[in-house]
């Protein structure tokens, strides 16, 4: 419970000076700013007004009015809580990490402000030392970032070299960047791909290089998304017999355990992002996992292993 008491206390200490700076704000607005429901904020206010300095008589209690019909809040006496508490190291560091991430991705208008804000924040919070022990790399080179940024702003064609993870291939393509989005900290670029004649999704950290390019012609009407990067319409699954060395795939790829195999292996069902992806995964397990289903995957794996073996002869 100590975590929640501290969390609440730190909200209360931040709340009073903020309310003073925003005199007359409504309970609903204040709640939205602090990421809590209005009921919680009201409870916070009720708690605040019974706290104070020893003696706890008139003039020794925090005094806040919040019972007019519009639900507006007025701080009448904040005691010593008038000004906000200095930033904790964690507060400063979470902001600094985010500023560094932002500085590395395309689509941020004022990059210089990110840098100067980080410097001021670091100094104010005496976090320079601690910040040095944390490093952030979103995996996008400054060159790629600059080119994509320009293309997004002006809508130009861009020549990229792309190292696909699922297909394990390197391709040169001409694309027209459309938008960026993120999932779990990874930045993706959606673009019209002239080479494919359709919309495609690229992981930005796998764009090896980028340069302004020439559109070979007007884009055709965008087709369906790339089956290798978009989730398939019908999610296909594979059943694997997994030996102890490869059990980590259960965690990493969110597998479901379906029982035990005859040889003591674990039967794991995995959602396949694509057949290519599943093939690469099984091959990389180097014999510590065997595909039982679907039969097509069993066949592809056998075929790939056979042709690879042939290359060694």
């Amino acid at each position: 419970m100590s975590g929640t008491a501290a969390e609440r206390l730190s909200r209360l200490l931040a709340l009073v000076p903020w309310l003073r700076a925003h005199d007359g704000v409504t309970v609903a607005d204040a709640a939205a700013h602090f990421g809590v429901i209005p009921d919680q904020l009201e409870q916070d206010l009720w708690l605040l007004i019974v706290c104070g300095e020893p003696g706890y008589g008139p003039g020794q209690l925090v005094d806040i009015q919040f019972w007019d019909e519009e639900g507006r809040i007025h701080v009448l006496d904040a005691l010593t809580l008038e000004r906000p508490m200095r930033l904790s190291q964690q507060e400063a560091l979470t902001l600094l990490i985010a500023l560094r991430m932002l500085a590395q991705v395309p689509g941020v208008e004022d990059r210089e402000a990110l840098v100067t804000a980080a410097v001021k924040l670091e100094q104010a919070a005496s976090a320079t030392e601690a910040a040095r022990a944390i490093t952030v790399n979103v995996g996008v080179s400054p060159e790629v970032r600059g080119v994509i940024e320009m293309a997004l702003a002006s809508g130009g064609a861009t020549a990229i070299r792309y190292a696909s993870a699922s297909k394990d291939e390197v391709t040169d393509r001409t694309i027209e960047p459309r938008r960026l989005f993120t999932t779990d900290g990874t930045v993706y670029l959606e673009a019209y791909c002239y080479s494919a004649g359709a919309l495609r999704t690229f992981r930005l950290d796998r764009v090896v290089s980028a340069a302004p390019g020439q559109a070979p012609g007007p884009p055709e009407s965008p087709g369906p998304g790339d089956p290798t990067t978009d989730p398939p319409a019908v999610p296909a699954t594979a059943l694997l017999a997994v030996s102890p060395e490869a059990r980590w795939i259960i965690d990493v790829h969110h597998g479901a355990v379906e029982g035990e195999g005859a040889d003591g292996s674990t039967l794991v069902r995995l959602r396949m992002l694509s057949p290519d992806w599943a093939l690469r995964l099984v091959l990389s397990l180097a014999g510590t996992a065997t595909v039982l289903e679907p039969p097509e995957l069993v066949e592809t794996v056998a075929g790939a292993a056979r042709s690879a073996l042939a290359a060694y002869r």
Binding site: E7, S10, R11, A14, L15, P17, W18, R20, A21, H33, F34, G35, R83, P84, M85, L87, S88, Q90, E91, A92, T94, L95, A98, L99, M101, L102, V108, D110, A113, L114, A117, L121
Partner: peptide, 27 residues
Amino acid sequence: AIALAAQVWSGASIAPVPGTALRKLES
């Protein structure tokens, strides 16, 4: 820039931490 940075954590379990930092800086 700092307001944007606080939003980077939206959805993360520790989002209240940079959120509180932003409120303090505002005040």
